[in-house]
Every structure is written in structure tokens, then in C-alpha cells.
Design a protein around this nucleic acid. Structure first.
Length: 265
DNA sequence: CTCAGTGTTCAGTG
DNA sequence: TCACTGAACACTGA
């Protein structure tokens, strides 16, 4: 479940369970795709004995500061997740990495589809992929004027630019659609065409949606009933918003986009 | 059997 | 070089 709200929920979980703890054991499942640029063996060996100093996040990326470098960085891809438990026999299916703390907790990274990544990096914030990220959608959005200056250079559809992690770090497919719906902007608009007032509306709406979703710990069942989120799934022609507006599904910016042409201009 | 999917990267094109 | 588009990646479930 990985957009910014889930990544932030994971950061808080790690903050609570791992920070200030020592890792007394680590196991990793061999997987050359998920363990990018390293290996399961090397990661497990490195983590054993380390103390966790801090839990950081930017966009959809998380990393752990350790008492020695390199540090541990991870990304959830499409299906990555974290699990916390106490008993070894509760180790979840599709686990890639499991840490055991000095107070007996176990934390596992799982990933069914293997688009997630686990890396060892000397300085995660200063190295790709994290160094390539743009404004964090929760904590780093600039003012409307600066944002407009960035968007002015982009001829792509607004939907595609919202998904560009080098501009809006942490925005994924449903957040992009939700923002465009609530800000009443068409996903097809060229990003460069937005007026300052429209950029201000986009910015304010994005921030409000991300903050609300983070406050709800990414628990989508509790998202406000007025959100497009509850009605956008499945490309069915009958789909309507809570206000009974017709929802259409089209591929824009290379992704399925749910939007309401009668409302979004 | 086919297709879509809460993500990212890379090759090809202009 | 840059911006943009579409395919590819791996796997599950409808």
C-alpha cells in the first residue's frame, strides 16, 4: 500500500519499534532484484549488532540511520509492507528481511511483487534515488510562486507532472487523481498553463489531502466520504462520485486516471 | 486466458 | 541535453 501516507506510517512504526534499539539478529531471503546493488547476505551480516539511531523519510522512500555507515534504505514499490511481531513462527509470507531487536521484537519487510528495494547507502539523502526527489508532498512544498516557476517549464499533462517524483515526491496514482478532483483541475491540462491562482489551489489541496491521509495513518476506510478515492476503483462506466457526478477512466500520463469532466477544467 | 494494478526505470523519439 | 512517451519489470487476482 505504498504512497506517501503509507511510507510515513512505516516511518512512525520504525520510530516506535526500532529507534534506540540494537539489532541482535537479522535474516534475509536471497533476492537479487529487491536487494539492489547489494545482497541479502551482505545486508543481514551488516545489520547484526547495529544500533538504530533515527527513522527518516522523503517521498515514498524510508531509511534508517545506524550507528555506523552504510545505512539501510528501503522503498515499498507496489506491494511492499512492514510487519511487527514477537514470535519467530509469525514471520509473514513473502518476507525479504527480518530484524530482531534487543527487546525481542521482530520487524519484517515483505514484498509479493518484488518492485520494492532494500539498499545499503553511505548517505541515503545525498545519493540516488533519494537525491533525485523533488519537494516532499507532506513537509516540503514550496510557495505557489516557486511551484508555478517549476510547472511553467513542463508541457506534459498535469497528471504526469503530479506523478513525477522529481517534482512532487510522495504523490502516487490515487493521490494525483484525488488532488485534481478536489482542486477541479483537468488531468489533461498542460502543467505550464496553470495560473498562479490555480497553482495555489493545487498546492493547498495536495497538502490537505496528504496531511489528512497521514493523520489517518493511511487507513483509507476512514478517508472522508466526499473523496473520489471511494469511487474510483475498477474501470466501470457506472462509477459516480458521492455527489452523483459521472467518473470516467482514461489512460493519462501512462496511468489509469479517474476523473470527472463535468467538474474538472 | 487476458488484463489491470496505490511504482520506477530505461530506451526511443523529437 | 532535455522533456516526453510507452514499454518493461514481477506477480496476483478479477
Amino acid at each position: 500500500m505504498p504512497e506517501l501516507p503509507e511510507a510515513e506510517a512505516a516511518r512512525r512504526l520504525v520510530q516506535r519499534v526500532l529507534v534506540r534499539r540494537r539489532i541482535v539478529a537479522a535474516a534475509a531471503q536471497d533476492d537479487p532484484i529487491v536487494f539492489a546493488g547489494t545482497s541479502a547476505r551482505r545486508v543481514a551480516a551488516w545489520l547484526r549488532g547495529r544500533r538504530v539511531v533515527a527513522a527518516r523519510r522523503k517521498g515514498k522512500h524510508n531509511w534508517l540511520e545506524l550507528d555506523r555507515r552504510p545505512w539501510l534504505a528501503f522503498h515499498f514499490g507496489m506491494t511492499g509492507d512492514l510487519h511487527v511481531y514477537r514470535r519467530a513462527e509469525d514471520r509473514p509470507a513473502f518476507w525479504k528481511l527480518e530484524l530482531v531487536t534487543d527487546d525481542g521484537r521482530r520487524v519484517a519487510f515483505t514484498d509479493v511483487r518484488r518492485f520494492g528495494r532494500i539498499r545499503l547507502l553511505r548517505d541515503p539523502a545525498a545519493e540516488p534515488p533519494i537525491s533525485r526527489l523533488g519537494f516532499d508532498a507532506l513537509a516540503g512544498l514550496p510557495g505557489a510562486a516557486e511551484l508555478q516557476a517549476v510547472l511553467r517549464r513542463r508541457q506534459a499533462p498535469l497528471k504526469a507532472v503530479l506523478l513525477d517524483q522529481a517534482v512532487f515526491a510522495g504523490v502516487g496514482n490515487w493521490i494525483a487523481d484525488e488532488v485534481l478532483y478536489q482542486a477541479a483541475l483537468s488531468p489533461r491540462r498542460k502543467a505550464a498553463s496553470l495560473t498562479l491562482a490555480e497553482v495555489a489551489r493545487l498546492r493547498r489541496t495536495l497538502h490537505a489531502i496528504v496531511r489528512r491521509a497521514v493523520d489517518l495513518r493511511g487507513d483509507s476506510d476512514r478517508f472522508p466520504a466526499t473523496w473520489l478515492f471511494h469511487h474510483r476503483w475498477g474501470r466501470n462506466a457506472e462509477a459516480r462520485t458521492a455527489r452523483a457526478e459521472r467518473i470516467v477512466h482514461e489512460t493519462i500520463g501512462g496511468r489509469t486516471t479517474a476523473w470527472v469532466p463535468t467538474r474538472q477544467r
